[in-house]
Design a protein around this nucleic acid. Sequence first.
RNA 1: GGGCUCGUAGCUCAGUUGGUUAGAGCGCGUCCCUGAUAAGGACGAGGUCGUACGUUCGAAUCGUAUCGGGCCCA
Length: 958
Amino acid sequence: MSTETQPQEKKSYKETLNLPQTDFAMKADLVTSEPARLQKWREMHLYKRLLLARSESPKGKWILHDGPPFANGDIHIGHLINKTLKDVILRFRTMQGYQTPYVPGWDCHGLPIEHKIQQELGPKLREMSTVEVRRKCHEYAAKYVKIQSEQFQRLGILGEWDDPYLTMEKGYEAGTLEVFAKFVENGLVYKQLKPVPWSVSNQTALADAELEYKDVEDPSVYVEFPAVDPVRLHEVFSGGMGKSELPVSFLVWTTTPWTLPANLAIAVHADVEYALVAYDERAVVLATDLVKQVFALRPDLRHDIIATVHGRDLLGLQYRHPFIDRVGRIVEAEYVTTTDGTGLVHTAPGHGEEDYNTGVREGLETYSPVLANGRFDDTAPEFVRGKTVWEANPLIAQNLKDQGALFAEVKIRHSYPHDWRSKKPIIFRATEQWFIAMDKPFSFEGEAETVSMRERAKRACSDHVDFVPDWGRARLLGMLESRPDWCVSRQRAWGLPIPVFYNDKDEPLLSKESVLAVSHRFREHGSDAWFTLSPQELLGHDFPYPPGFEPEKLRKEQDIFDVWFESGSSWHSVLQRRTYLQFPADLYLEGSDQHRGWFQLSLLPSIGFNGVAPFKAVLTHGFAVKPDGTKVSKSDKEYVTATQEIDRHGADVLRLWCCSVDYQHDLPVSPAMIKEFGDKCRKIRNTLRYLMSNLYDFNPQTDAAQVTASSLDGWASAALDKLIVEVTAAYEQYELHRVFRLLHEFCAVEISAIYGNAMKDRLYCEAPDSPLRRRSQTVMHRMLVAITKLLAPMLVYSADEAWEHIQHKPLEDARCESVHLTLLPQPSGEEVSEKQEAEWRLIMELRDQALLQLDKLKKEAGLNKALDAEVIFYVDDAELRRHLEAYGVDLADVVGAGFHSFAEKDTPGPAVEVKVLDRRETYAVCARSWKRRPDVGSDAEYPDLCLRDALAVKGLKK
RNA sequence: GGGCUCGUAGCUCAGUUGGUUAGAGCGCGUCCCUGAUAAGGACGAGGUCGUACGUUCGAAUCGUAUCGGGCCCA
């Protein structure tokens, strides 16, 4: 018969147990608790306290320089990813002992804000002065700086929020001009007519970063450019043998018919084979490979290839423009292909980057007869004069048709650049722009050799910068290799004016001294001074004017800087001007799009100013994508609204999600995925809570016990050491997803499923100060402190809350009011032998086997409680048996059994075999520990208890 | 079209210099416990490692091609 326990007795013994106690709530309620904790941090000046605490640190400073987000709109998932990664890494460095001042920044100037203000003002805009518009833009930017600042702080980002850097702030503006002055001094700044991407709707040049490529349908035309000397052309094709006067044309294809008035040349590839094709009493020249394809457009025409030559044979031949009285010639270009078109490329140096380069080489004019508003000027043929380029497209096609020069017209779908703000297609237009030369050699004072910006930047990138991931280096190098000269001018109002003055002959006054003079003025008054002060006031009364420049007759430049020049100079205005920071930064951390953006455009100014990179290391992360791996847009169901998700789940949940994904690649995310991380937070929180609740009566200073290797405590302690080492290494390598995985798994498996579970019996049932219980508490206390600290950089709120509930913190942490003020945990230093590891592995294997048997007994015999079972270990080897016996009650507890025993092994096989037996019919159950044991009833005073529990209860009575 | 890059269970990740039946956690399913309880435990089902060739005695791991993503550029 099984021995049933009376319900009443159960109750009475419950009072004698050491059941868990804690005020640390199981339910986190992050949504309300986080803002309260944030407020607490503000009141205690956590950020400043941290800087102070590390001010004498032998580790010194570690600087992460913040890339400034644009001050526009609420923060989105991309901001969240970026700022969270920065914050986690900074907090890790702080806990390593570094002092980590972090100054967040914002990019405040630029088209997007100006565009917004234009929309808000509408027609009123025309009545307002530039300064008034700029004031509106300033207000707008300031408003969003404040909004985003609040949102970042809510996310738990720690930093100098009461004094961030703003690119529109006057000291910052002055700093940007200081950087520019150096470029002027080094002779790298020049002004030139050059085709640039031009936004017709905004009447401004655009940066590459301001272009968006979209698929659109455009008219494409195949145009015949008649050869000036057909006889000679026939000779070229016949090798001088044949003579013919059949009219010949060069067949050219373009998707931008409106650029044809600016055509000055036709480019061919020297190695490509070109054919002379006769049709309909005339002939055309085009690439042999494309004859079939092109004539397929005109199935009505019978055609014959007469002869072929190579492109180089055509060089120098002349053609007549079909509707302008002008002669052009055939030139060579590398970029000519035979994948589409005709293999002869219409070249208008005023309307394209490649065309421009060809034009410069061939000595052609940079001609573009298009005005800023997108309409043709007076130099254009009469039939398009005053028309917009888009209106001109059909007119030109019609004109060609009338001339008999239109071979074919085909609608084509292709990718074409658009203005990122107005979403309208852009044009390339030659305008006067300011440039920074990439290939002009220069030297700094004391430098023997002269080296170009491009070369210097590449050297810095190759030899002095670490990249995470390391392919970032190749990517940045590739961009430095191919980038054109930097066009730094924009025709806008909301930005930093380019400090150039012109005399009445339009000659520029631009020198290191003139720029620095204006910089001083800006440091005092801000860049609005450019619009409110006269040139004399800007330059100062003692400015030494060069000959030919009379102060009263000076005119101010109207262009402003490319915003990238401003944000790219932040290392100067921030790192070099704020003396508590350091240059160069230890780390720049941004999305991988910034290889082209901020990384490159910070590297270049720093190279020009300092000769070195502004960063020692560059870390990039990927982009948020939908769970299927494709791009997200706001209209998608999977779109994650960062602020909304924080309000719904709490910042810690978002932060944990962010840290769980390998950010080197794309980060798949959806609201459903975020939600799952609530579960993971809870698991971690409950694990901490469990540890904590069993330490309510434990003080490590007085109660700590020696941890022996031959015990689960020894195993757990070693596992914790390993965890500390691995997590620290993962943080060090910025592999945050590994940190998360290690910690989460440790909580779920090592603690929750194995160790914590096994310790329950002794924690609850042993006498409070029994050595076995104290030993376990010793390990659990160390575990709790260490894990809370390791979690702190990620789960900033939850870890800090847990920290508050830990009693009797280690001495070195005693004065740390917040977990964020502490240093990382260190491993115990206990050496673990290979043999010991093997022994623990054996025990875990035996545990697995026992659990399987237990499960079988449960299914087959209805044995639902492991406490009703006995585990028998069959061992022959005396030494091994002695080793295992040292684990004592651990051997039963590790599988949750009531009792364990050893027996002689009578069969061959593994050194140890384990067997689980159902003891419901054999032993009585202890009414207090619920374990079935042979020693239940041994104590006459407590016949319903096992020996250990009887003693424990007696102990309590004393 | 070009540069860089990614593609292992529903999800997030491990898989050392190519070597036995590809692992973990979560999620899911089934069950148990009710002294971590809006907690905890056990067991289980899930993958032809994007696809196709190739190198090799042997490939998730090397090579080529291809498909599908992402970032940047044209």
